[in-house]
Write a protein that binds this DNA or RNA. Sequence first.
RNA 1: GCUCCCGUAGCUCAGUUGGAUAGAGCAACAGCCUUCUAAGCUGUGGGUCGCACGUUCAAGUCGUGCCGGGGGCACCA
Length: 641
Amino acid sequence: SETPPKTELGDVAFPIAFELAKRLKQETGEKRNPREIAEILKSSLEEFEFVGKVDVAGAGYLNVYLNRPQFVAARISAPPLPSLGKSADASAPKVCVEHTSVNPNKAAHIGHVRNSVLGDTFQRILKATGKRVEVQNYIDNTGVQVADVVVGFIYIENKTLADIKLLDAELLAAGKTFDYYCWDLYAKVGQEYQTNAELKQKRAEVLHLLEEGNNEIADLAEYVATRNVECIIDTMQRLSIRYDLLPRESEILHLHFWDKAFEQMKQLGVIQYETEGKNSGCWVMPFESHAGTDEHEADKILVRSNGTVTYTGKDIAYQMWKLGILGMDFCYRPFHKYPNGQDVWITTSDPAADQDSPGFGHGETIYNVIDSRQSYTQDVVKKGVAAVSPDRGERSSIHLSYEMVALSPSAAEELGFVISDEDKARSFIEMSGRKGLGVKADDLIDRLEANALAEVEARHPDEPTEEKKTIAHKIAVGALRYFLLKFTRNTVIVFDFKEALSFEGETGCLCQYSAVRANSIFRKLSEGGENLDDLLTVVSDPRKTAQLFSAEGGDEIWSMFMLASRLEETVAQAASQNEPAILAKYAFNLAKGFNLFYHNHKILPEPDPTKRALLLCVADTVRRSLTAALDTMGIEVPAKM
RNA sequence: GCUCCCGUAGCUCAGUUGGAUAGAGCAACAGCCUUCUAAGCUGUGGGUCGCACGUUCAAGUCGUGCCGGGGGCACCA
């Protein structure tokens, strides 16, 4: 259409040829060598003039290519991510993202943070693609881990509920936190179990009482678990991670979710009562796909011979609730209000408490954020749900699995742990709450904030203290979130202090820095009384723009612009591949690209007004894309750095 | 025994679904602050993509088999 300036045909012949060969094969089955096609293209199309390098892979690039100036004009005035910030239609299908990781028995460690950062970022990605999202954090308040801490309080420390409340107040007064106290106590109980069989017996008793509810020990456990949940909420809030609902296991038990699911499963005949064999007296779900032998070895027991339900049974019922196919609901009460005004609700079995809850569950799709060690169990649960509801079960629930965060041997030593020669030889050591071995989330955030503050102090000594702290906090959050997001989900993160505390290289800090620099260009611009909107008209002249792109350095400007234009596509890709790391890599490449861009092109001093306007428009597109990408990862851009 | 994941530069990791000469960050060495912020930029060295066959115009990517590392396969949660 336009008369595009001239460049090398060779640059475009190969990608076009690859695309043609691919389509030819798809549509006619004919196989052609792309190199041959490229040669034909070169010889037959020499009379045409092309614009420049092809930067867009895939089917759409040719159109983009020939209409570059118009494309630029259209993109420049468009918002970076149209769906971002716009709340989804209330009638849109709901997606539930559930974090399942941290037990409410002690402080959260870095492994729990990976779970929550992953879940929170993925949730933000889904929102950015226009989905309606509900974020849940499952609270296993009746499990062994809570039972262990309760055992510690009662049988090691001889404390009553009143004593614990007193202790809690003392800790608060001393500037210490309840979850840290529980961390140590939990490790102490773990030690004690090794030599004290009697104590281990107590665990079974306590566990039973917790499940039963309505007794003194259950009340004590309730207090301990709730206090730990409050601590976890605070810790995660530091990282801008917030939840909508905290579903508790105690309600799943007390409201008898399982009975309802059990009834349905019996009616549909998807489970059987065994009268002979090794599973005699149990209700089992036949499970052939994992069977190794012709015995029913792989059959999964859902109800034990003593009549109690297994974890898998409970989880099937819970999954059914999430999908809205159980036919039962929790009661809810507000639990906590975040500083941004958002409420987090918690489940309860008291119908009187339930007043204005917005309604939870009924997800069209469910994402379960659980580490990959639970893959088998997740699969079993999924098959169980699918047995009840074939059309929903398989498709609607997705295991967003991730590998654990382990410690490098040197990190374990730095934490003051004596490690065996055997462990020293290993590439990593698994964290263990029972041994007290792990990096507590708050400790790490504290260290990051302190390091960042020292850097800010050195660079901006005249800033008010509050402002310096705010900046340091944003840098710390950016560093930690980026560090956990840059790895793909199935990579084991071997935690190393030096790497995690770094503000240099491929870090969140570099991304933030780049955005801050971009912002300061526009701050200077408006300080000089210039308006960006006026500059848009200069750039919307296709002929002038086309000339600039074909001039010296034009390809570089074009590449920068194209990269910045790919945010929406990247977010969509991260969503469809369930991989937040794609977005993290994109943000880093964008930031790095921009660092080079403003190094090579002096923007504000640029004498040619058209080129200056174009550079400014490109820089503006970059900073908006970068800011939106970082925001989608829960990373804020500080005012200064 | 069955099953899933991983193996890419000295180290830690990407690799856009099979495309052009395999990329980043650390670490090492050499440069760049009178300039829109040096938490940055530039350059150098560093690769038999674990091994071997196979599929095809084309394989780090797909298939099979080995070798090496990790996880998971309860009337635990």
